[in-house]
């Protein structure tokens, strides 16, 4: 059971997500497995703002200058200096001792400040509960607490996703980040994200 960190406390673990863009086949299994696992009631409903399936993973399709189709998968970056943590007026958004950015629904009034504060645009409003949803969902948190991987990691057929502790030098994510070229999104935003995009060997 993870606990809420108080001001000045440092997390004992720094759990991070890794997405290997060089392995990804853009099948969308991670996006759908996220919804079916964490928000099954949203499987047939659209996230109106994004015009896509309501998932904690947002898929951005684009085309490079050379005309090559490109996919970017974005989700909560569990930033070490998370803007949503600073702006949430009621303390509903917090960091736990695993370094994960969490939401306490008891303390959320649905003001949307966390939504406008997130530079990655990864929070979406559940139309019924009006909670600002994001990675990780409740069921994925249960999976992780039971020592399993989150739904997206389990569902990926190409092995393009991973999740682990950056503080553990032997964890699979640490090894990947040590041996492969990777980058983080919006590095200049100063949020210290813990979502890594692997670009190749």
């Amino acid at each position: 059971m993870s606990t809420r960190l108080r001001k000045g406390q440092a997390p004992t673990k720094r759990m991070a997500h890794v997405w290997d863009a060089s392995k990804c086949i853009a099948c969308g299994a991670c996006v759908l497995s996220c919804t079916s696992t964490n928000n099954p009631d949203m499987m047939t409903r659209e996230e109106k703002g994004w015009h896509s399936v309501a998932s904690n993973i947002r898929r951005i399709d684009s085309v490079t200058a050379q005309g090559r189709p490109e996919v970017l998968l974005v989700q909560c970056q569990h930033c070490e200096d998370a803007p949503c943590l600073a702006t949430c007026p009621f303390g509903a958004t917090y960091m736990d001792d695993n370094g994960m950015i969490r939401l306490d629904p008891r303390m959320c009034a649905g003001c949307s400040y966390c939504v406008t504060s997130c530079p990655y645009n990864v929070r979406w409003f559940h139309p019924d509960s009006k909670l600002p949803k994001k990675c990780m969902g409740d069921t994925c948190l249960e999976l992780v607490a039971d020592g399993l991987q989150p739904a997206c990691v389990q569902a990926c057929p190409a092995g393009a996703r991973d999740y682990g502790d950056l503080n553990d030098p032997d964890s699979s994510v640490s090894v990947t980040l040590r041996t492969k070229r990777s980058r983080r999104l919006l590095e200049n935003a100063g949020t210290e994200p813990k979502y890594f995009v692997v670009e190749g060997s």
Partner: peptide
């Protein structure tokens, strides 16, 4: 305008008690 305005009293109570 709050999406969960009905939860505001509970929110403030939890905030103060915690």
């Amino acid at each position: 305008h709050l999406g969960r305005w009905w939860n505001l009293p509970r929110t403030l109570w939890t905030m103060v008690t915690n």
